[in-house]
Design a protein around this nucleic acid. Sequence first.
DNA 1: ACAATAAATGAGAATAAGTCTCATTTATTT
DNA 2: AAATAAATGAGACTTATTCTCATTTATTGT
Lengths: 148, 148
Amino acid sequence: MKNMTQEPRNILSQHKVSITNPRIIVLDTLLDFGNPITVEELQSKLKGKVAKSTLYRVLNDLKKINILNEFTSPDNAVVVELILEEDSHHHHLFCSDCGEVIDVELSDEFEMMLVKEMEKVQKELHFEIKDHRVEMFGLCTDECSNCE
Amino acid sequence: MKNMTQEPRNILSQHKVSITNPRIIVLDTLLDFGNPITVEELQSKLKGKVAKSTLYRVLNDLKKINILNEFTSPDNAVVVELILEEDSHHHHLFCSDCGEVIDVELSDEFEMMLVKEMEKVQKELHFEIKDHRVEMFGLCTDECSNCE
DNA sequence: ACAATAAATGAGAATAAGTCTCATTTATTT
DNA sequence: AAATAAATGAGACTTATTCTCATTTATTGT
Ligand SMILES: [Mn+2]
Ligand SMILES: [Mn+2]
Ligand SMILES: [Zn+2]
Ligand SMILES: [Zn+2]
């Protein structure tokens, strides 16, 4: 049985934001793509359907309700991805050649060790750490549909 | 005895790029600041000394010879830092409040474990990983000179 | 040290990602 | 269905970065 929460209308109503066409279209596009995507690429997919200003507004709306993650690729492209309830904590791998961004889940042992490292840092630097991110850079080889 | 390689002129000649005033001034400013710095802040420090276009060109030059690291802070500010020979591999901590970026060295055990994780990922995803980055986000407390 | 040659610079124009404005449309509430 | 509040589209605006090109500065060979 398919998860109801994956429908744009449900996502929006769950977060108490009004259900509008541009929001549905943007969510649909992100869900359909299924991977982290460049704002540029997203814009081209939405060409003629959602105004540029609206796209940026919708992305901000999604960030505000914490269902959109935004980060910057090594070549300074802004990348966004939906944060779905079923998603687990993960990190990213960037191909320096084709620009693809790939989700990576690291082992629990690793994550636990990272938490311990962060606790050490918190104490040493008197810093309250709220979040972390691990990014890996390299080149995709035979599995890459873009840059084989 | 102070390390000769830390002098702008030496850094430049070691990397076989011509020794010019703007390059010396930019390197001096980065060395003097000693921490990761926002391009914006760097620009204000160089106001009247180095033209905006030249600053960007020099930063690109330094990136090309691999002595400048560039990354993006959570509020999308571009941050740069010199990579000096004496620097060891390290990561960064970002204060969401004042924007400060702090160098963090994580334990060797952690780094070794991360390498192992990367090896696993390489095999699973047929990806050749060249580099990695760990970023931590949070709030500085009593030690922060900017946002106490 | 000096001319010739190549490389780098400054000033400002051009580009483009992201924001803002405001008249109109759409959603929500009553 | 009317009233109210919120969101949208189109394009103007802002601003970080890149580009152009005439001038200056560095390097090389003599
Ligand atoms: Mn992801
Ligand atoms: Mn650093
Ligand atoms: Zn690739
Ligand atoms: Zn701070």
